[in-house]
Computed example of a mutant assay.
Amino acid sequence: MREIVFDTETTGLDPRTGDRMVEIGCIEMINLVPTGSSFHAYFNPERDMPSGAEAVHGLSAAFLSDKPLFRDVAGELLDFLGDAPLVAHNASFDFGFLNAELTICEREVVCMTRMIDTVAMAKKRHPGAKLSLDALCSRYGIDRSHRVKHGALLDAELLAQVYVELKGGRQIGLELAAEIAASSAPLAGEPVAVRQAPSGPRRDPRPHSASAEELARHAKFISGINDPLWG
């Protein structure tokens, strides 16, 4: 099954008030395994960059000024997405900005039925726990030491690992191991290799109990300890 894990960076929190998408990063997965295929782009938002948003992702208006407009790469992005389910963290936020940009350039919006929200998955699996991407990476032992600021492609890569864990990643590995073991088991009627017992003289078992001399030395040592913990 093909799925796309994606993340966006924006100028703010609400596209209805004029905020725009400035970056998108997408990771392709097939049967929960990253294929190595990805899509990444920065966009010129055609507006200023609020300082609060820049502090989160580090993308300045000057850096984005020579980047393409969303409409210029929308076709390439949609080709990459295809008709696959789309996985995002707090997915309604990312879907909202993606569809707002598609609406601006008069493209068909992405159907919300394709949305898979890892926040909702994590809330169901870990009720009452912290649900941020950082918190989930810590929970599952995913290295995020290189994540200094938010970045769409890096966050999508981390989220892909979190998504596998939320889907039962380790259990999936155990199931695969069981399938491999079952497939390698001998069929009925097949000869089974039997390991022969070693031949030759048997060695007497080694003694493991302390000798009388060792016990005496131990008792003498113990008697010389002042105020022992064992009374």
Results as ranks from 00 to 15, higher is better:
residue 67 K to G: 06
residue 147 R to F: 09
residue 76 E to D: 15
residue 138 S to W: 01
residue 163 Y to V: 11
residue 197 A to R: 15
residue 34 P to F: 09
residue 187 L to Q: 06
residue 196 Q to C: 08
residue 34 P to Q: 10
residue 40 H to N: 05
residue 188 A to L: 09
residue 34 P to I: 07
residue 169 G to P: 01
residue 195 R to V: 15
residue 151 G to S: 12
residue 187 L to W: 02
residue 92 S to E: 04
residue 142 I to A: 03
residue 37 S to F: 06
residue 172 I to V: 00
residue 154 L to G: 00
residue 215 L to R: 12
residue 15 P to W: 09
residue 26 C to G: 07
residue 127 P to Y: 12
residue 101 E to Q: 10
residue 214 E to K: 08
residue 189 G to A: 15
residue 50 P to V: 09
residue 230 W to F: 13
residue 113 T to C: 01
residue 76 E to A: 15
residue 90 N to D: 14
residue 193 A to P: 00
residue 171 Q to F: 14
residue 197 A to P: 07
residue 139 R to N: 05
residue 10 T to F: 05
residue 92 S to Y: 03
residue 112 M to H: 11
residue 28 E to Q: 13
residue 187 L to F: 02
residue 203 R to C: 08
residue 145 S to P: 12
residue 77 L to D: 06
residue 189 G to I: 12
residue 17 T to F: 13
residue 189 G to F: 14
residue 1 M to Y: 01
residue 58 G to P: 00
residue 84 A to T: 04
residue 44 N to L: 00
residue 167 K to H: 14
residue 24 I to W: 04
residue 1 M to P: 01
residue 230 W to V: 13
residue 8 T to P: 04
residue 14 D to A: 03
residue 185 A to S: 11
residue 35 T to L: 10
residue 186 P to Q: 03
residue 103 T to A: 13
residue 163 Y to N: 10
residue 117 D to C: 11
residue 92 S to I: 05
residue 81 L to N: 04
residue 172 I to R: 11
residue 212 A to Q: 10
residue 65 S to F: 07
residue 212 A to W: 06
residue 65 S to P: 00
residue 212 A to M: 10
residue 140 Y to N: 12
residue 220 K to G: 02
residue 38 S to C: 01
residue 114 R to V: 11
residue 188 A to S: 08
residue 71 R to I: 06
residue 33 V to Q: 14
residue 230 W to K: 13
residue 57 H to Q: 02
residue 200 G to Y: 10
residue 213 E to S: 12
residue 4 I to Q: 06
residue 115 M to H: 11
residue 6 F to K: 08
residue 22 V to I: 15
residue 79 D to I: 02
residue 187 L to K: 10
residue 51 S to Y: 11
residue 100 A to M: 04
residue 61 A to H: 01
residue 186 P to K: 04
residue 180 I to S: 05
residue 151 G to P: 07
residue 196 Q to K: 11
residue 44 N to S: 02
residue 229 L to H: 13
residue 136 L to R: 14
residue 138 S to T: 07
residue 201 P to Q: 10
residue 61 A to L: 00
residue 33 V to P: 00
residue 191 P to L: 03
residue 191 P to N: 00
residue 136 L to G: 12
residue 106 E to G: 06
residue 55 A to W: 00
residue 59 L to P: 05
residue 81 L to D: 04
residue 107 R to F: 10
residue 73 V to Q: 15
residue 22 V to M: 07
